[in-house]
C-alpha cells in the first residue's frame, strides 16, 4: 500500500555572511517547520551553512528549457552590455 504523498520543498543554503543562498537540493516534509529541520539534518551535516531557506517546490516558476533560444535571444545579441565591447587607450590606465 503506497503512502499518501508529502509536499516537496527546495532547499537553499547560505554558507557565509555576504554570500547568496545557493540551491542545495530537495526533500519531502509535511510543513515548513519540519522542512527546515529536515534540511538541517540532510544538507548541513558538515556545517555547510548558517542560513537555510525552504520553499515549497510548487511556489517556484521556472522558464522552460525548450524556450531557451527565444527567451534569451535578446541577451545574446546585445554585446555592448559587456565592458570588452568598448575601447579605452592603454595610456589612460585601468578603467
Amino acid at each position: 500500500m503506497v503512502d499518501a504523498t508529502t509536499p516537496l520543498w527546495e532547499v537553499f543554503i547560505r554558507s557565509r555572511n555576504g554570500l547568496a543562498h545557493k540551491h542545495a537540493g530537495s526533500l519531502h516534509a509535511a510543513d515548513a517547520t519540519l522542512a527546515l529541520q529536515a534540511a538541517r539534518d540532510l544538507y548541513t551535516r558538515r556545517g555547510e551553512g548558517l542560513s537555510l531557506w525552504v520553499v515549497p517546490s510548487s511556489a517556484i516558476t521556472a522558464s522552460d528549457p525548450a524556450d531557451k533560444g527565444m527567451m534569451f535571444e535578446p541577451t545574446a545579441s546585445k554585446i555592448y552590455r559587456h565592458p570588452t565591447f568598448y575601447e579605452v587607450p592603454e595610456e589612460v590606465g585601468h578603467m
Binding site: V2, G25, R45
Partner: peptide, 27 residues
C-alpha cells in the same frame, strides 16, 4: 550511518525527478 541515510535521500530526490513519486519508489 547518518551519511548513508542522507545519501539515500539525495538519490530518492534525484530519482523522483524522472516522474515516479517518492512514495511509489519506497513502496
Amino acid at each position: 550511518v547518518q551519511d548513508e541515510c542522507g545519501h539515500g535521500l539525495y538519490l530518492y530526490a534525484a530519482a523522483e525527478t524522472l516522474g515516479t513519486s517518492r512514495e511509489e519508489l519506497v513502496d
